[in-house]
Design a protein around this nucleic acid. Structure first.
Lengths: 158, 158
DNA sequence: GCAATAGAGTTTCTAATAACAACCTATACC
DNA sequence: GGTATAGGTTGTTATTAGAAACTCTATTGC
């Protein structure tokens, strides 16, 4: 366990609250997943998620507001609107996959489909892991919290 | 009352809904972060998060129910209870870090503190990325969805 | 051209849930 | 007895969810 680790009972500041501000609401990640699955239209999200229309409208609007998705009128059919992931939205993929993999691992063994693969060789992607700057895989035992003012100095683990 | 624990009917099935059922509520990730920062007692979480006591009680209970945390009576002081991350909870670290890194990257430039470092060399961990089975880093362009029944066959990018 | 229809919402109304504040309780320690 | 710790209870408000009906524009079929 982490009994050897010196607990730091100080206020922590990090990007998590800001991420949760955008993605912490109930349907946000499900909408994101649908978007990664190629859905773009309001009616597609509605059918896939079974979410009430007003709520879906609100969530999509919020994701657009926060720059996660872009709202684009279709050229071919001007009734249609396309919601497409922005760069910022695409950058949420690691977080979504990490969550999803965790759910798969500990959930009630529902077979995942479809699977995300490397387009080059068709093999499923690896598990999302934590790595050192030089690429070594790290576990919680290998990690320590460090005050950012002291970065680069030696670390005491116990 | 279409909630997240119902299996999806149409396009995609995966572990995400199950992960969100455990971690999708408003304070769950903040509690998790506090736990990773070494907090163990009810009053510590309460002080750190400023969350109403009944809500905190409910969330902690739910995390324990779901096996993310363990509720342990302290040996030294029998009044005290320790909430400690289980293996299952520790395995949420990649997801939490990916979210946090995303928030840092796109948030309003709040300096993160403390920073998670490799205890061996004191260097901050790398960004959480998606990798192929052989370890190559992959971006969204390199990926494809594949029906799990056809794994290993040729892939067309969607 | 005109009616019917499709897409993307908005509005209204209602129910359920989450959140918060402020007490209250039950142990266990001193 | 007095205090610390973990939580339950009560009451109140805010938010979220949902169903159904409505709007507005664009397209399609005749």
């Amino acid at each position: 366990m982490n009994d050897l680790r010196e607990p730091l009972k100080q206020l922590a500041t990090c990007g998590l609250p800001q991420a949760l501000e955008v993605m912490g609401e109930r349907w946000s990640f499900m909408i994101l997943r649908a978007a990664f699955n190629g859905l773009v239209h309001f009616e597609e999200f509605s059918a896939e998620l079974g979410i009430a229309r007003n709520i879906l409208s609100g969530r999509l609007g919020r994701l657009v507001e926060n720059g996660v998705m872009a709202r684009i009128r279709s050229q071919e059919d001007r009734r249609k609107v396309e919601y497409r992931l922005t760069e910022k939205g695409l950058d949420l993929l690691p977080a979504m996959l990490a969550l999803r993999q965790w759910g798969e691992r500990y959930g009630t063994g529902i077979a995942t489909n479809p699977v995300l693969v490397d387009a080059r060789d068709g093999l499923p992607i690896a598990r999302i892991t934590i790595r050192a700057a030089d690429g070594r895989e790290l576990t919680w035992q290998d990690l320590a919290w460090q005050d950012s003012a002291r970065l680069g100095q030696s670390v005491k683990k116990g």
